[in-house]
Design a protein around this nucleic acid. Structure first.
Lengths: 319, 319
DNA sequence: TTGTACGCGTTATCAC
DNA sequence: GTGATAACGCGTACAA
């Protein structure tokens, strides 16, 4: 266990100089096949691992990236993080996870620690109130998720696309009285984009918009459900599956099983409990992949300031 | 942003030697108040931060601990992790999060990386199949959560206590025909302990045990629900809230609202959707706290091999 | 009390 | 192709 062997020991054991061992470790050329093999054998046999801290100090790179989520128990962020982790390991990076809990100050504290550790990169889940001036100087090593910032690379979700997907589906099924329950919370941008998509669609199709904005919770969905149900309402779109779960409970209690319910997020539990509900897979996992890809390319060379929008799709209908 | 200042620069700027700066940084004595103040001023002014990698190399400690969860989206582990993070920051440790996904090999790979990085400590969520010999040599720097291993410190949940809590409550309410849906999955120990608690209680109170073992999912709960409902059944205890959610759906579909449903885990969504159900708060957050506390004490001096059982309690009845 | 010199494990730059 | 040697930023005996 105690990895107290150093490159020097390996050198001694294989009868070469430390430089040669270093060359072998870093797959550099200019070392004869026999020597390389011999050194590799010793390394293998001693199960030697070079010290990361020493490398970090020498090479500037600690091979560390931070993932700053807003809430680790948010299903969306959680899912994105889960796809990031293995990708980062693959590249030899260790991910350190931090929670901002929507607090700007916490982000600042985290960034300070990261600076101290000379972190190579940061993947940051944006939220309302997080000003870009706080991120001054981090543009080259940072990728923002779920929000766009001037000068920063980012990976965003297709908020209006998701709402339109649902609206089109419903419209095609003949629905003409579709209510909407949105939010102005958590991430203003996201909430606003979804609301706007709904409003635009209604205007375009000459439908009467019936909407209400609340919080991004099932409690809120439940409480406000009554307010968006008109006598002629045949479908309800919710800005998230959390909200939809709240509305679903209300609908069930009122025995209004004839109303088509829609959410966004492809929440597994919701699909289990209310399989008839429609929902959109926003692509959280995909967002994780893209964020890592973007960050890596940026760290290895590269132009900062790219924006990626992850495509969404209707979740497969359940049997 | 570019923290390219070194301790040497600070020394020059404040007109002292590097050692003095070092002493100030580490709050060591033997430095005159005036000098200290002067150095601190420069540090503050230049917003200087000592390089972690350099310190790590020198002092052996990277101030890094790893948290190896089995699944990041498990509500229990998630909650435990969330309480760990701030505690670790407080102590100056950076947590790097890894997922095992119940794979022994992945744990091994992770440990290898950690060894390379000279991680100070590891908090590992145990699971079935994870043999203790894989952890050879890590006992002093490791705390296991949710399982006990010979020679390792651990933090466990009160599995039998939780079941007994529910059983006593039900029994006291007059229930005499209580079915049980358990699991042999995920973590054998946990599953077995809960099942045994149920069986022991039945024997002790002369009740007829009706039980079935399935997977730890709501799907499984739903599928198997029929099998544990006898005509005289008045209550059902599930080994977890996930299972309970499945059973709840079945009960609702069958309009069996007269059956008292119980779960374990205090899942928020379940409490929202089925507020009449009983559930036990197992103490995930508390477990996180204890795990960190244990690890810290171990790293700072200390005796390894302690076992802590986190107390559980009935979740408060909902209004 | 303060400054100097050296070592930690690795990589980069030279000579050979 | 290979091996000394000097950095990297910091901690720390030891000398002043």
């Amino acid at each position: 266990m105690q990895n107290r062997l150093t490159i020097k020991d390996i050198a001694r054991l294989s009868g070469v100089g430390k430089s040669t061992v270093s060359r072998v470790l870093n797959n550099e050329g200019h070392v004869s096949p026999q020597t390389r093999e011999r050194v590799l054998a010793v390394i293998e046999q001693q199960s030697f691992l070079p010290s990361k801290s020493a490398r970090a100090m020498r090479g500037q790179s600690d091979k560390v990236v931070a993932i700053i989520v807003s809430r680790l128990d948010s299903p969306s962020e959680n899912q994105a993080v889960r796809t990031m982790l293995p990708l980062l390991y693959e590249q030899g990076y260790d991910p350190i996870v931090m929670e901002s809990k929507f607090s700007v100050q916490r982000v600042q504290e985290h960034l300070q620690v990261l600076q101290q550790r000379a972190a190579d990169g940061v993947i940051l889940f944006g939220f309302t109130g997080l000003d870009e001036q706080i991120l001054e100087g981090w543009q080259e090593k940072t990728v923002i998720v779920a929000r766009q910032y001037q000068g920063f690379s980012s990976v965003c979700y297709d908020d209006s696309g998701a709402v339109n997907l649902l609206l089109n589906q419903l419209y095609q099924q003949g629905h003409r009285h579709i209510s909407y329950m949105g939010t102005h919370e958590a991430d203003t941008t996201t909430g606003a984009l979804r609301t706007q998509a709904y409003q635009a669609f209604c205007e375009h199709k000459q439908l009467e918009p019936v909407l209400i904005l609340g919080e991004l919770t099932y409690h809120s969905g439940y409480e406000l459900a009554e307010g968006i149900l008109r006598p002629d309402t045949t479908a309800v779109i919710c800005a998230s599956d959390s909200i939809a779960l709240g509305v679903a409970k209300y609908l069930q209690q009122q025995h209004k099983s004839d109303i088509t319910l829609c959410g966004i997020g492809n929440n597994l539990l919701m699909r289990f409990l209310f399989p008839q509900a429609l929902t959109v897979e926003l692509g959280y996992g995909r967002a994780g992949t893209e964020a890592v890809r973007l960050l890596m390319s940026q760290l290895h060379s590269a132009p900062s300031g790219q924006h990626i929008i992850v495509p969404c799709q209707l979740a497969d209908p359940l049997p």
